[in-house]
Design a protein around this nucleic acid. Sequence first.
DNA 1: CCGTTGCAACTTGCATGGAAGCTGGTAATC
DNA 2: GATTACCAGCTTCCATGCAAGTTGCAACGG
Lengths: 234, 234
Amino acid sequence: MARAKPARPDAGERRPSLVDDAYAAMKLAIRNSDFAPGYQASEQEIALRLGMSRTPVHEAAIRLQEDGLVRVLPRRGILICAIAPEDMREIYDVIIALEGQAAERVAGLPEPERLRAADALAAHAEAMAAAQAAGDLPAWGLADEGFHRTLVEEAGNGRLIRIMQTINDQSHRARMLTLRLRRELDASVTEHRRIIDAIREADGPGAHRHAREHRIRARDTLLPLLNDFGLRHL
Amino acid sequence: MARAKPARPDAGERRPSLVDDAYAAMKLAIRNSDFAPGYQASEQEIALRLGMSRTPVHEAAIRLQEDGLVRVLPRRGILICAIAPEDMREIYDVIIALEGQAAERVAGLPEPERLRAADALAAHAEAMAAAQAAGDLPAWGLADEGFHRTLVEEAGNGRLIRIMQTINDQSHRARMLTLRLRRELDASVTEHRRIIDAIREADGPGAHRHAREHRIRARDTLLPLLNDFGLRHL
DNA sequence: CCGTTGCAACTTGCATGGAAGCTGGTAATC
DNA sequence: GATTACCAGCTTCCATGCAAGTTGCAACGG
């Protein structure tokens, strides 16, 4: 039949296994708070709900534990991890360091890629400004997320991307919750534009500094907010 | 009998399961190059060697894959990952960002802890200088490792510690290999002392900058070395 | 009424078996 | 000789069974 191998020299595009399904489903459920933090689920129950046996659920749970989203308690079940303000401080420290580095890398790209990256970032920034003008908070959050994801992805460091993805998964619920508490959306857009400008001008240290300061300010406005509201677990 | 619970309010000190054993054993084997990169092992074989069934080995393999040390190829076996110079660049980028942040954090600690941390770091620096004087390369490597581990641990950020641990596991083999290629041991000791001094003086930005530049220099001397030697996979 | 003990139900840890998929070599064909 | 088809043996994937550990509650004794 002519073409036996459709497309796979050695790259690893393989159809998802049941373990992958379980992993994705559980991760999504945690993101959406279908599994609330503190909830203790049994593998059997999840397996039943997903229509598979305990084994793939168990293996997915191991991966989620590695991601810091759950804790597998021996012979007691799967505990959905809560996020405390202290965790947010840790998370922000990592973000501050890595996003600064990413911005510097992007600013150091050769001209064509650099300008394409800047344009992509600018598109997200525009979307944020528009959402802000329209008072559309969810859209603002989505555009903000897109901006930061693009910034990290354009840096072209797979490990950095992966770490940031993990960290973002951990803090997603907290971000959703605090989105409506914020009153400083203007500042974000302005700061984003500063980062973009520095990248356009191939100003590595400047991009680093602006990205860093942007996240530092975000942390310094967010953490007191969490403490004021007495949010111990998110 | 009076005190029924010896010591466990809720903390999770539990005896290692077979999965933990398998994980530790495989990780060690990879570190020591008992499993060379590129080697393709079967779960059955490893299980046999460790005297357990396939299940715990399989689950440990999943964790190792999450750590980026192996790749589990569906229905083909466990592939020990090799490290290419490009990977080292990625790894150094992450280290540069995170260790700078860690140093800044340590410099920002309250006085007593800060000075204790500085002393601990100084002890490692002394050991390095001594090893260098004695021409004892392995001891030098060990002390260097201790210095950087202490720096990260004293920052008191669990996530940061974990990420650095993972990254170090990935690059351990490469570091061992390149240890004897280096000719710039003096510089390291001097730079370490600069970091320590900045921490002693609670100079956060200074500590950040020195830690950063130390790792940047290490990267810039190491990467050309790897390329010159044509080391494609380590 | 309160503290203790024992049990029953439930949980996961791990072993094992059947099934499906991949690989490499061999034989058949052009 | 080169190419294709195929098959045997290997591998993991997943379901399931059994054993061991944990929990909550009921019954009991003070």
